[in-house]
Amino acid sequence: MADETALTDFPSLFSLKGKIAVVTGGSRGLGLNAASAFLQAGCSKVFITSRKAAGCDRAVAQLNALPNLQPGARAISVPADSSTLAGIESLVSQVSKHVDHIDILFANAGATWGEAFDTHPDAAFQKVMDLNVKSVFLSVQKFAPLLSKKATIDDPSRVIITASTAGLGVGSLGPQATYGYSASKAAAIHLGRNLAIELAPRHILVNSICPGFFPTKMANGLLEMTGGIAKHAAGNPMGRLGKPEDIAGVVVYLSSRAGSHVNGAAIEIDGGALWKRGGFLEPEPESKL
């Protein structure tokens, strides 16, 4: 009879040693939190991309100054506009100049727009859907050859999509309604499930994360407009809002050997706030990109 206490190399279960990651929307906020986690968990290279080169360069400088990286590990700036096919193709080309494969794609770039129902503009709705859904699909499609290059059944590569609890419940309504954002995040979650089944035979796992409120430089203004950080924290079952480590822990889990049999999942990271409010969310702490 097999020893049920025996685990294969438990000390390395959450290690990303030697892995290569690409983080879209990685120059700030949750994307930068995740990039820091990837590097500190052992990644050898983490590519940071967003539209603005200066933002990518600042993020890379911060990441490369972290004190506990693997020897030779580094973050690399690859600015590109992930909202267009040309931008995504440019990103793949830039990454391919450095490496012949990647192990992790964190599809995090996104946008939102808040406006009342009667005046909600067509252009804004289209922009949000394009970046939050179509560009996720195109990013996975164009990076698939690099993701599958060295992936195996025992060591699959990973795609993580940043969705939101707004895609699981009712998002912000009223004067700052986020119709496109909520619809796009629901679509991103379901897209992830479809991609999970399509790409599993290629040894690529696809999962989504669904953050709730996370105070960041980008989010603090909206948090204050909707009652303040203290109010939102008090309304959470955990009595606090999200912290960078909450994102870090989940993305490392999904990217490491610990998450090697998780596929098509959508993991809420909100302390239970969605279900305390019966599936209704207050305005999301996101900003227009």
Rank of each mutant, 00 (worst) to 15 (best):
Q94E: 12
V95S: 03
S96G: 14
S96H: 08
K97Y: 03
H98Y: 03
H98V: 12
V99Y: 02
I102S: 06
I102D: 05
D103Q: 03
I104T: 01
L105G: 08
F106V: 11
F106R: 02
A107R: 02
G110Y: 11
T112H: 07
W113K: 09
W113D: 08
F117Y: 08
F117I: 14
F117G: 04
T119A: 07
H120M: 12
A123G: 04
A124M: 13
A124G: 09
F125S: 01
Q126R: 06
Q126A: 14
K127S: 15
K127R: 14
M129W: 09
M129R: 02
N132M: 11
V133S: 09
K134V: 15
K134R: 15
S135H: 11
S135L: 08
V136G: 08
L138K: 00
L138T: 09
S139Q: 12
S139C: 15
Q141S: 12
Q141N: 05
K142R: 13
L146G: 02
L147E: 08
K150W: 02
T152P: 10
T152C: 06
I153Q: 14
D155F: 13
D155R: 05
P156N: 00
R158T: 14
V159D: 01
I160G: 02
I160R: 02
I161C: 05
A163Y: 13
A163N: 06
S164F: 14
T165Q: 11
G167C: 13
L168W: 04
G169C: 07
G171Q: 09
G174K: 03
G174P: 11
P175G: 00
P175Y: 00
Q176D: 15
Q176F: 12
A177V: 05
A177I: 04
T178A: 13
G180P: 07
G180Y: 04
S182A: 15
S182V: 11
A183S: 08
A183P: 10
A183F: 07
A187E: 11
I189S: 02
I189W: 04
I189M: 06
H190S: 12
L191N: 02
R193L: 13
R193S: 01
N194Q: 13
N194E: 05
L195Q: 00
L195K: 01
A196H: 09
I197W: 01
I197C: 08
E198H: 05
L199I: 10
L199Y: 14
A200V: 15
A200Y: 09
A200L: 15
P201F: 00
P201E: 00
R202P: 12
H203D: 04
N207I: 14
P211M: 06
